[in-house]
Structure formats: structure tokens, C-alpha cells
Amino acid sequence: MQEWFESVGKKFVMAFVEGDRWKLYIKGLGVTLEIALFAAIIGLLIGTVVALMRLSTKRDGKKTIWARIAGVYIDVIRGTPSVLQLLIMWFVIMKNCHNGILVAVLSFGINSGAYVSEIVRAGILAVDKGQTEAGRSLGLSKAQTMLYIVIPQAIKNVLPPIGNEFIVLLKETAIVGYVSLTDLTRAANQITSRTYEAFMPLIGAAVIYFTIIKILTILLERLERRLRKSDNR
């Protein structure tokens, strides 16, 4: 038992303390959070616009060209692995962009946008149709009805699943090592490749991810509880 503790202690020192390696995890975590945060913002913007495109109808109730374009975008993004999207973005579409973080942010943002758009669409559809009819019957335009009546109510519906999507996105960024960016996962891999010891760096990185996501989950739960309360106002 004592031996076990000693060897674990040694591995711990090697994986975190020696050569100030803990700084690599912190730096990696910074990159992970930076990519996830900005990608989430872009995903939210794209997702909202695409959801509205997808819901747009002509006067006779048929799909518009915008709805079709949005449908194709969602199909393509959901039908391909995100790591391939990242590689294509990096080596093909934005191959001359030297800001690696930006490429990753855009790639993940575009990816997340597809999922967010489906969440937003569901959230909008969940708002009672009568709300739209009431708005339109008062002479408000489609856009005004959306903006002042439907979307504010949809936001309440979509916040919990959007939070979930952000958590998924945060974990998904672990693949940026593929394009030589040093996020938390890659930092752990780097340390493994230096110390030839995989246990501590990988477990350490997992614990960091877990902690961050646990905190996010708790915040989300609080938000949800507050939203539910405001339903009874």
C-alpha cells in the first residue's frame, strides 16, 4: 500500500510539478475555454439565424429557398464528424489563416450552430401558435411578432438545452490537437510524450474537465430553477 502511494506520488510530481508542468494544463485549459466560449457565441448567432431561416414560409405556406439552404447546412454539419470539419477548415478552407484559434472557433461555431438551430427551432415551435396569431391579428409583421413576442418566450424554452449544447461543445474541443493547437487534452498528451507516463496527465485533464463542467451544470440548474419560478409570477 505504501509503495503504491509512493509511486503515485512520484508520478504526480512528474506529471504536475516538475518543470512547472501544471502551467501547461492551465494554458491548455485557457485555450479550451477560449475556443469553447467564442464558438458558443458564434454558434448561438448562427443557430438563431438558421432556425429563423428554417421556419420561414412563403405566403402559401411552402418552404422558402432560405429554409432549404438552412436544411442542407444542418444536414451536412450533423452528417459529418466534427474532427473532419475541423481538418477541412484547417487544411482546405482556411489554409492561409495563421490564427489557429480563430480557425478552431469558426469550425466549432459553425458546427455548434447546426445543433443550436435545431434547439432554437424547437423552442420557437413550442411557443403556442396563438401567440403568433394574436400578434399578427394586431397588425404586427412576422418579424415584429417574432422579435417582441415569440423569441422572448422561446428563450426560456431553449436555455436549458443550449446550456447542454455548450457542455458538449466544451468537450468536443478536445480534438483541436489534431491541428496542433495546445488545448487541455493536447497539453496532457504533450506531458505524456515527455514523461512517458500516461496515467496522471490523462486523469488530471479529465478531473479538470469534470470540475469545469460540474460548475457549469450547477450554474445551469440554478438558472433553470429561476426561470421556472418566473413562470409563476
Binding site: D128, G130, Q131, E133, A134, G135, Y148, I149, P152, Q153
Partner: peptide, 13 residues
């Protein structure tokens, strides 16, 4: 043209 609905449809927000 004012319209009144069966389910009121007041804006909940």
C-alpha cells in the same frame, strides 16, 4: 380588424 380568440392569447411575456 380586431380579433378576439377562444384562448385569449395574451402575450405571456
Amino acid at each position: 380588424m380586431g380579433m378576439v380568440f377562444q384562448n385569449f392569447n395574451l402575450f405571456n411575456n
